[in-house]
Amino acid sequence: MRQLVFAGDGKVEWREVPDARLVHDGGAVVRPLALGRCDLDAGFVHGFVPMAPGEAIGHEMIGEIVELGDQVKGFKEGQKVFVTAQIFCGICTKCKRGYTGRCESVPFGASFGMGRAGGFGSSAGDLVYVPYAGAMMVPLPEGANPLALIGVADMALDSWRAVGPHLKARPGAGVLVAGGLASVIGIYAAGIAKAMGAGQVDYWDENPSRGAEAAKYGARVITDPGALAEGYSIVVDASGDAEMLVTAIRHAEPEAIVTSVCMQLSEMTAVPQREMYHKGITYVTGRPNLRPAFEDVLTCCRAHGFRPELVTTEVYDFDAAPEAWMDVSMRSAAHRPSLYDA
């Protein structure tokens, strides 16, 4: 079978690997239907984030179950499911606390398609073995189009953690998103904030293409930092830019929550710690815990009108998935029809 592999120098290709097979009664074999290229994938391909040539790439996937272990309950063959990017067992102490990105049963940070330890390969392949299927699979809503919801498989979950829980605790709060390196994640954060009824959603980015995508969600697009408001309660840093991070922090109100959804690429980044201390700023960074956010994001889509498909996406046939990964567009995806639909 084929699997997407990063070949180095901006190239992605199909390579033959051993067929995915059911090796444990708690697992499943899933046939991908929709593959999405994540912001992190773009970072790998374009050299912003290091990845060794030969590593499997791709972790945003919706598929259909073709084989199911006897221990997996609540699912059936032919069912369409999201498969989480993170590999986690669902039963260790960390998983039970909702820290699915820090599972104790697998090598730290284990994931599909990110060059991480554990040898789990990519979720971008002809077939994928899901080792902890009962924990790692989430049913696709009945009748939903996988291409329309592929953003929920990964990036929208990352966006949610930066705005959704905080808007539940602070209804109507003002939100600032500093856009940039994590391009779609930042735009989705603005879209989720608008859907959740934030009082004001400002999207700050000099890039006109990203600004136009954020405007589709109703965000106010700002290109000049001089136009930023004073006192945002919720701040999202998707910029990857140290100066933008500092400016965003300085426009946060006392007791604000600032979340970085992407890492700074330099090893050390200076922040205005004294100002943050006096204001009582909470600063959150790090790899998100994806699984706990699925139901909230799907509810945000269903009940509040968040539409991940609004971000312009270049769509490729499944066989052309390598071209989708090398596409310079902001967002790309690949798809194929179901084996089970009439």
Rank of each mutant, 00 (worst) to 15 (best):
206 E>I: 15
26 G>N: 12
290 L>E: 05
19 D>W: 05
263 M>T: 11
188 Y>S: 03
134 G>K: 01
83 V>Y: 04
231 G>K: 11
253 E>G: 13
292 P>G: 05
302 R>F: 08
85 A>V: 05
312 T>Q: 13
160 W>N: 01
179 G>V: 05
35 L>Y: 07
204 W>Q: 01
302 R>H: 12
190 A>C: 07
208 P>I: 11
270 A>N: 10
299 T>Y: 08
221 V>I: 11
246 V>K: 11
298 L>A: 03
106 V>S: 09
297 V>K: 04
30 V>Q: 00
98 G>H: 06
271 V>K: 03
114 M>Q: 13
309 E>T: 02
74 G>W: 10
207 N>M: 09
32 P>K: 00
40 L>K: 02
199 G>R: 03
188 Y>K: 01
240 G>I: 08
335 H>V: 09
99 Y>R: 09
47 G>C: 06
23 V>P: 00
55 E>F: 01
196 M>C: 09
103 C>W: 05
144 A>S: 14
166 H>Q: 13
273 Q>P: 00
257 I>V: 15
252 A>F: 03
82 F>N: 01
303 A>C: 09
149 L>M: 12
336 R>W: 04
38 C>W: 04
147 L>A: 08
306 F>G: 05
312 T>V: 08
266 S>P: 00
334 A>K: 03
136 M>Y: 05
28 A>K: 02
140 L>A: 09
100 T>P: 10
122 S>A: 13
254 P>I: 09
21 R>Y: 08
105 S>E: 15
165 P>S: 04
58 G>D: 11
68 L>H: 02
80 K>Q: 14
211 G>F: 11
117 A>S: 14
281 I>P: 02
223 T>L: 12
313 T>Y: 04
127 L>P: 00
159 S>L: 06
8 G>T: 07
138 V>T: 14
220 R>L: 11
299 T>I: 00
70 D>R: 15
337 P>A: 08
71 Q>L: 15
329 S>A: 15
34 A>V: 12
342 A>P: 15
7 A>D: 13
137 M>Q: 08
136 M>H: 03
214 A>I: 03
278 H>Y: 15
101 G>F: 02
15 R>D: 00
100 T>F: 05
229 A>N: 13
171 P>R: 04
